[in-house]
Design a protein around this nucleic acid. Sequence first.
DNA 1: CGTCTATTTGAATGTACTCAAAAGCGGTGG
DNA 2: CCACCGCTTTTGAGTACATTCAAATAGACG
Lengths: 193, 193
Amino acid sequence: MDAFHLLKSISKHITLDAEEEKYLKSILLPMTMKQNEFIENTNEVTRYFINVNEGCLMTYYTDKEANDHVLQFATAGWWTGDLNSFTNGAPSIYSTKALTDSKVLLIPKIQMDELLKRFPKFEKYFRIIFQNSLITHQQRILRNLSMSAEERYQYFLQKYPTLEQFVPQKHIASYLGITPEFLSKIRRKMMEK
Amino acid sequence: MDAFHLLKSISKHITLDAEEEKYLKSILLPMTMKQNEFIENTNEVTRYFINVNEGCLMTYYTDKEANDHVLQFATAGWWTGDLNSFTNGAPSIYSTKALTDSKVLLIPKIQMDELLKRFPKFEKYFRIIFQNSLITHQQRILRNLSMSAEERYQYFLQKYPTLEQFVPQKHIASYLGITPEFLSKIRRKMMEK
DNA sequence: CGTCTATTTGAATGTACTCAAAAGCGGTGG
DNA sequence: CCACCGCTTTTGAGTACATTCAAATAGACG
């Protein structure tokens, strides 16, 4: 099993001994995904928290009018999935799909609880992961409140320059909270300058 | 010192022994705030993470055009402040002020680090706090992406019915990402029905 | 090459904003 | 006690940013 990016992420914040690393690896479910494949189903309770080892996934919400809204893109090393469903056992409202052929590691909910219980060191790791993620979510909320669509797009390009390769424009538009048509117009306007 | 709501929040997730509770109390700085008073200053590094024991605070960002954008309202038991500045030592871009006379508890950054080191049990507490907060931030992002201003206001009223008492309409408008004038028009429209 | 989906383009529309002025509301001092 | 001040909320007219809808064009894949 290849857990390179996960172990890299972990080693930034805590140091595992051989036993801890072995145990962690024993509970991870590696999974290979083809482009456009999904993990689990909307409306069911999420059983897994997902770490991306290779490729790019997208987690999004589909509203009653069948419009998609992208919560997150996730590349190597990132965690994704429906955290609310995973944590609280609520039916999932998100879909998570592969934008490219990908390799992911799944942690089942029960194993995650057991991991935290047996090796409290992982509490620190996830505390830091969630803390950092919370900070970036706060910043995204403020960008949505204070910046125009064009400014948000410019920020996106500068912050995630590599994502453009994987991600169709319509999904970037959705992440930014605008329609694909309007993003197209923004791009034209930016080219003219 | 009155740490009632903080201890209540903690006891939901972990159980403290006498020593842990004593140590925790020893590092908390109680502070009384009059309405419209601020904690710390924008542009400086945040030294404290803030827990509200009584009253209501607001954390907001002021952009270049001097428009305020509300990140969060915090009532009894809630944590607030500039988490990015606190965590990463960046200059603060938020202001935190009291909307009513309030009582808060401050944890200095250094003491927080020491607390987590000496009593790793608190890693679990903050892991859960940040995890839950992350979930609510994700949900807020999706509401901003998928709901109209009126729908967001209705959701706000239903979710935080008590906040209306403390919070001027213009700040609710700011939290929702609209102008006070437009919120006023939404309210009129809702009355007419 | 044909099919399917993504992107672009343009016209009409709608949601939310800006600006300006009036009305409401709370506190303070004469 | 009420008159005035400062701030918030309301109202209306005009405007701008972004959407909708429809059609054309471009790209990707078998």
